[in-house]
Nucleic acid binder design. Sequence first.
DNA 1: GACCCGGTACTCGGATATAATATGTCCGAGTCTGTACGG
DNA 2: CCGTACAGACTCGGACATATTATATCCGAGTACCGGGTC
Lengths: 161, 161
Amino acid sequence: MQLKNQVEWALHCCSILAGVPEGHFLSSKALAEFHGVPKEYLAKALQALSQAGLVETTLGPSGGYRLAKKPKDITFLDIVEAVEGKGSTFVCTEIRGNNPCLPEGHCNRGACAIARVMWEADAAWRAKLRAVRLSDVAKMLVEDVPAKILGDVAEWVRVRS
Amino acid sequence: MQLKNQVEWALHCCSILAGVPEGHFLSSKALAEFHGVPKEYLAKALQALSQAGLVETTLGPSGGYRLAKKPKDITFLDIVEAVEGKGSTFVCTEIRGNNPCLPEGHCNRGACAIARVMWEADAAWRAKLRAVRLSDVAKMLVEDVPAKILGDVAEWVRVRS
DNA sequence: GACCCGGTACTCGGATATAATATGTCCGAGTCTGTACGG
DNA sequence: CCGTACAGACTCGGACATATTATATCCGAGTACCGGGTC
């Protein structure tokens, strides 16, 4: 099991979009160039974000994407679920129903014990992702990345938006 | 992203193997019949468990599988990792390195902020799985499943092992 | 009667096809911008 | 000089191929059991 690359791309793109000046948009082409990934394919990830209502789009020259909410109101989980879907990582196919020892017409009450455990773990994963907001990334970057580079990136975004 | 069906099968199989009488084995054929899944394919999941050292095998008539450790010493994480691999669900491809604003020869120190968050969530997921042991499943089943059925299953296993 | 030996049937393990999904690419519909023209 | 209409170019969005992974299946190597033969 492995998350799609698009998840990583979407997260990085949102992190960049958070720095787009008010009222401006950043095109998928610019985002693709910035991250060094195929433009056409990255567009699919951005589409998913758009359908999830996380980003807004505009067509035409100087069009592109921008966040639809404030960075404070977008969680990692929002982005991950937009790309990967909201379904649980574990799906119970109820194979316990094939148990030959079950009496005819037996009906299992509630979820099976194994599924419960797996779903709990899944919930813990999602809880961790829900706890981190896009605004938190900005703070981390300030600590990690030299101010000079941060400034250059901001300038690069400003020019392309 | 979705876990393989084999994970579910492996968990259920281990839960059954925990009830095999001391010194006996249960064949993949029996496990497949019990769960109503293709025998040959289930064997792959059991192979993974075997390679991970979770189960022991014997060939020949009355051969098959049995747990290599006590149910108390086998966690859900052990089983999941045996089938899915130990790799993180999130892989960082370091696309930040493609950032055009980076000075020549710039070397990123430490993991990128986004990867750190994703890995933390992954760790939380694994921690939940590590906290549940195979022996806990037996307790849950006692609460969920009528004693009559539990007894029938134990008898079924005894006959086939 | 006890021991040894060989055949048989059953087991696991890895190598091999098929289906589903993730990855990557392409083209068309729509719209904003910039310019040229007319008032 | 200002407003308007139009052409162009750029955007997103979905439809279309390819690569990788998951699913399912098959066959061979190896071993424990069982029966017969021998001491």
